[in-house]
Design a protein around this nucleic acid. Sequence first.
DNA 1: ATTATCTATAGATCTATAGATAATGC
DNA 2: ATTATCTATAGATCTATAGATAATGC
Lengths: 196, 196
Amino acid sequence: MKVTKEKMAEHREKIIASAAKRFRERGFEGIGVAELMKEAGLTHGAFYGHFASKEELVELAMERAFRDSNAKWEKVIAEAEGDPLQALGEFYLSLRHWKNAGTGCIFPSLGGEITRQPTRVQNAVTEGLQRFLGLLGGAIRGQTEETRRRKAIAAYASMVGGMVLARSTKDPALSAEILEAVSEALPGIAASAPTP
Amino acid sequence: MKVTKEKMAEHREKIIASAAKRFRERGFEGIGVAELMKEAGLTHGAFYGHFASKEELVELAMERAFRDSNAKWEKVIAEAEGDPLQALGEFYLSLRHWKNAGTGCIFPSLGGEITRQPTRVQNAVTEGLQRFLGLLGGAIRGQTEETRRRKAIAAYASMVGGMVLARSTKDPALSAEILEAVSEALPGIAASAPTP
DNA sequence: ATTATCTATAGATCTATAGATAATGC
DNA sequence: ATTATCTATAGATCTATAGATAATGC
């Protein structure tokens, strides 16, 4: 039953990728080790040859999710024809993102649960968030570095909260209304004068 | 072991109050029926004399949490000396709220989990959210009803997302920076022109 | 007599581990 | 010989239920 080194590395990647997706879809406790391993075509006993614990997988899955999201954001910024913030807002506050939690931003899916995770997971999230704010700050106009960072934080908070609210109801009209209203408010955040 | 009707009603209230608090602190799956009953001074078997299922308690706890929050918001609006939106923003984006998830807004605590709850729970949340937006819309300046509602949605999304991000890190400086940046951006949202 | 609560337990999870199996790679 | 995976299971949950107990309230 032993496999080649390459196969084993593939298995590991597959487990992390499944976890990154399923955790965002169902929460950290919404899928167990056994089902994740089944998705990778393995038995759950084999899990502990790859990872020391489920907690370790949670950490790796968060890093993976951040890397994937980062790549998407960079692409949206690079391909934006007009204002990059507006392009990011449309990308984030889209029906596509609303429907696909598994491939989307971790905060609307797992925001509440992250607070209850062990320190190592929270540290991975903090690093990812800081990198993200740097990326977003670069896409926002502002006189000083500090202004751009503040605007990035405010804009990102709007987007995250907008998705949380839009996903919390099954009323499609209300969801659409929320996504639209938050989208429209983004320029106001980007244009607001920095209060010293 | 039978108790008076009044005592039983008290027990019921105590269970719902504990649930409303603990669910916000630990998530819906973070506390079980047995521990909730222990907090009310009862055994877990007695639970099913009060509620048909844990799901029913989740629904009742959400209604309770919304009622409590609503009362707090009304108080803040009534007692606001300047701009009520600014007062609400300071109240919501405070260190006090950051530290006390159990008595705070349900969305930063349970936002991600609500999507995965059964319809009856989501319906309770949708009703609560709509009432909330009505309350907030009344505290925001704007020419038309529609404008006020849009601004209310955008402002609330900012606050919710700000708290999600602030709670997702253990770095106190980053948390404080996020709460401050989102607070400062609120006037920009309230002042933004409605895009037709 | 009725019923709110308690004791005890069924049945279904879940994480993690121990030892067996079989294929890689020296 | 080493080791990635598998089988089987320990031990700890959790929701829900059945039947016993004892106090209320007719």
